[in-house]
């Protein structure tokens, strides 16, 4: 025999996988080469001896008492769930969370941020009384009180879920402020007309009216400025939080990728070690056959 049969063929024969013509031709080859037949016989005997190796007594099996984990729980234990949230969804969630936090914190501490020519001021606690002239009419006081309570109600109760709603409410607030201004101006004018007609209930001079109007305008401006200032700060914080979240997300992805690469390298190492050992054995077998060739 010139060529030694492959290991795969030898094992197929030993395990009874060769049938018919294939088996006959293989046995003919073995007959022509007694030393290979002897080697094969030794391997067959070894296999027979392996089968005689008895089983050992196993320890008692454990019993699971907890219910089998649900599929979603199994999935939860696997890493990288964050990867499945799109960046847009994460950004929207971050913005919504930031807005909610700001509104809750602002309503609890009654924070008031004001900006004017003297700079930025932050105040906490209930809104202070707006100074009005002593001879201010009761109706105007009531109007101002209604305006404040409306503003507070808008701030505290109608927490915006997203920026679109928030800005719509701001626009609504502006409209209601304009309406109140218009009403106050109309009342002042009516009083003036009543005075002229000789049926005055209370008299207000032009200077007083101007003062009241100026106070109202200032108040309105402050409120609007406060609202825009708060919105701007919210946006800034949202942006910062989004950036922080994104950096954290990048870190996490990097760590997971590193872990994956390390696992792949380890697996590659293991496989190459196995291949190395197998190659070494093949070389060993070849060397053996070369050494035994001259003796024949």
């Amino acid at each position: 025999m010139k060529n030694k049969p492959s290991p795969e063929l030898l094992i197929s024969y030993l395990c009874g996988e060769l049938q018919g013509e294939e088996k006959k031709s293989f046995e003919a080859l073995l007959t022509a080469s007694p030393e290979w037949a002897a080697g094969l016989e030794e391997t067959r005997q070894l296999l027979g001896n392996l089968h005689r190796l008895p089983d050992v007594e196993a320890p008692p099996p454990p019993v699971f008492l907890e219910p089998l984990p649900a599929q979603e729980e199994v999935a939860r234990t696997r890493p990288v769930p964050v990867r499945y949230l799109s960046r847009f969804t994460q950004a929207v969630l971050a913005v919504a969370a930031s807005l909610t936090m700001l509104l809750v914190a602002g309503s609890l501490t009654r924070t008031r941020v004001t900006a004017d020519g003297n700079g930025l001021a932050v105040r906490f606690g209930p809104v202070g009384e707006v100074s009005v002239p002593d001879n201010h009419s009761e109706e105007i006081r009531n109007t101002l009180a209604a305006l404040r309570s409306e503003m507070q109600a808008l701030k505290a109760e109608k927490a915006p879920d997203h920026s679109g709603q928030f800005y719509r409410e701001l626009a609504g607030l502006k409209v209601s402020l304009n309406e109140l201004n218009r009403r106050v101006a109309a009342q002042a004018k009516e009083k003036e007309v009543q005075t002229v007609a000789g049926r005055p209930r209370r008299q207000l001079s032009d200077a007083q009216m101007k003062q009241i109007m100026a106070a109202l305008s200032d108040e309105n401006l402050r409120l609007i400025e406060n609202a825009f200032q708060a919105a701007s700060e919210q946006q800034q914080r949202q942006l910062q939080e989004s950036l922080t979240n994104f950096a954290r997300y990048l870190d996490q992805i990097r760590a997971e990728d590193t872990e994956l690469v390390l696992a792949s390298i380890e697996e590659m190492d293991r496989k190459s070690e196995v291949k190395f050992r197998e190659t070494e054995q093949v070389i060993d077998a070849l060397l053996e056959s070369v050494q035994t060739a001259p003796q024949r």
Partner: peptide, 29 residues
Amino acid sequence: ENTVKSRMYYGLKALRKVLAKWNITKEAI
């Protein structure tokens, strides 16, 4: 499948070598 068969062949061969090194022959069993 061929890799598996090849591993089995070389595994059995290695096992025979170990036993031969320990002077364990079929007659000793």
